[in-house]
Simulated assay, not measured.
Amino acid sequence: MEKVHVFKGILDNYVFVDVLSTSVILQIIRVQFLGDFANTTPLTFSQWFFTVFIGFLSMPIAAAIKKIPVGSK
């Protein structure tokens, strides 16, 4: 069975890193500082940690799902 390294080489693509960094920065600004304008409530540190943790889980879960064999017709 082929080994799957979900996070291998993830930082090698600079465009991906730039888009991801910009997205993270804008999300933090939107949630923490634009409350009335964006209709959001600032999050605590533990809430931020939990949301980032859930986000990081999506890639290993997707890799595990791809390992499930699917029959063809």
Rank of each mutant, 00 (worst) to 15 (best):
N13C: 12
N13D: 15
Y14P: 01
V15T: 11
F16L: 10
D18R: 06
L20D: 06
S21F: 13
S21A: 12
S21Y: 15
T22W: 06
T22P: 00
S23R: 12
S23V: 02
V24C: 12
V24W: 13
V24I: 14
I25F: 13
I25K: 15
I25L: 12
L26Q: 15
L26V: 06
L26W: 11
L26F: 11
L26T: 13
Q27W: 02
Q27E: 12
Q27F: 02
Q27T: 10
I28F: 08
I29R: 11
R30Y: 05
R30M: 07
R30P: 01
V31H: 00
V31R: 00
V31A: 01
Q32C: 07
F33V: 03
L34N: 07
L34D: 10
G35P: 00
D36M: 09
D36K: 15
F37Y: 12
F37S: 06
A38E: 11
A38Y: 05
N39F: 02
N39V: 06
T40S: 02
T41L: 07
T41N: 05
P42V: 01
L43S: 02
L43C: 05
S46R: 07
Q47Y: 04
Q47K: 14
W48E: 01
W48V: 01
F49A: 12
F50Q: 14
F50M: 13
T51H: 06
T51F: 04
V52T: 13
V52W: 04
V52F: 04
F53D: 07
I54W: 07
I54A: 13
I54S: 08
